[in-house]
Design a protein around this nucleic acid. Structure first.
Lengths: 195, 195
DNA sequence: TGACAATGTTACCGATCTGTAACATCTACC
DNA sequence: GGTAGATGTTACAGATCGGTAACATTGTCA
């Protein structure tokens, strides 16, 4: 019910929003379609009329998250055009904001962890996206003059993924709230080691 | 069956080993007691005679993992006595080994993530352990002469947690394999900023 | 108002999962 | 060898979950 007041009036959108929220909180296997439908102020039958199966719903949720991530990236590139260093700093700051937001789009990473060791149809989708994001970030770091751009992106990946985990399990008292200064230090450290 | 050949002959120990292995691979909610008992070359009835419930089994597994983590820490302190810097470097190296091991004891972190938003009896146990480990590591960093020891421990926490996630979802091709050099760089960076 | 599409409601099926009961078998120890 | 305790086997109860069928209700537009 909480999701319904602020959400679009169409059941399809309400269901997607509720599903993304509950998947984040309880995991894909940890929440049932009945609870999702109820949280969307709808019902299981309507859910299944819009999405043929729970797997399909998961896939649609991930596609929505991917679209948001795409907008996130494009916005960074547009805000500071032709200034890779500013774009990289912007990326760190915005990534930190996303992590500590209630409604963050880190579910792609969550899904990657939960779909491993299973033959979920969305698994390859998530893996390809991760590779794309890392390739883009490597290029950005290289443009910003970082020597070992691959290693920096690996470091940022670990920090982001760790911060997302930590935020979910430790919340506001955890290390995730210090993601931005930590990542900024790491970036500065790599900048200093530029050839 | 695979677990049984190399495992202790007693059903109780075989079940614990199989449970820890399968909880890591599939998550606590992702595996059933029947599958655990079968993997331990035992049966569900014996499992329930030793552990009253699945939750109790989870708790015992976490206690075993905590005992191993305790041994891990004591070994580090013993290997390089009165040399905090060497102990810190040792911690980084061994943590990297653990992360990329098949049988690692990172299940405490996994459990923390999976038990959040649920009233599992082991939740507080895991949270208290995490606080203890971080407190110890902060003291070690301080002894090693690190200026902002809390922030370094936060950074290492994020890196470890991220590496564990990444290792499970991306495996040998992922960023987790570069955990040790990344963490070493971060530690060196914090060492340089010593007051 | 009438008609059609979308949505809600209820009930159910089959599979899976936790947990238990009853009984059979094995193993250690005297 | 015999007995007690630990273990294995089978069957089942109760709950949950994914998914479907049939029917009732609502909303929309002509």
């Amino acid at each position: 019910m909480t999701a319904a007041v602020k959400c679009p009036p169409r059941p399809r959108e309400r269901i997607i929003d509720a599903a993304r929220d509950l998947f984040r909180k309880h995991g894909i296997k940890g929440i049932g379609v009945d609870a999702i439908a109820e949280a969307a102020d709808s019902n299981k039958m309507t859910l299944y009329r819009h999405f043929g199966s729970k797997d399909d719903l998961v896939f649609v949720c991930l596609q929505e998250a991917a679209a948001e991530a795409e907008a996130f990236w494009n916005d960074i590139k547009k805000t500071n055009p032709d200034d890779p260093k500013a774009q990289l700093n912007d990326w760190v700051r915005r990534a930190g904001d996303f992590i500590t937001m209630e409604h963050c789009n880190c579910e792609l990473l969550d899904a990657a962890a939960q779909l491993v060791e299973s033959d979920h149809p969305a698994r390859r989708f998530v893996e390809d996206l991760r590779a794309l994001y890392m390739k883009r970030l490597v290029e950005l770091c290289r443009e910003a003059g970082v020597g070992d751009a691959e290693l920096l992106v690996d470091a940022l990946s670990l920090l982001v993924e760790g911060a997302r985990c930590n935020w979910r399990s430790a919340g506001q008292k955890g290390a995730a709230t210090r993601f931005v200064p930590i990542a900024q230090m790491v970036v500065a450290d790599f900048m200093q080691h530029t050839a």
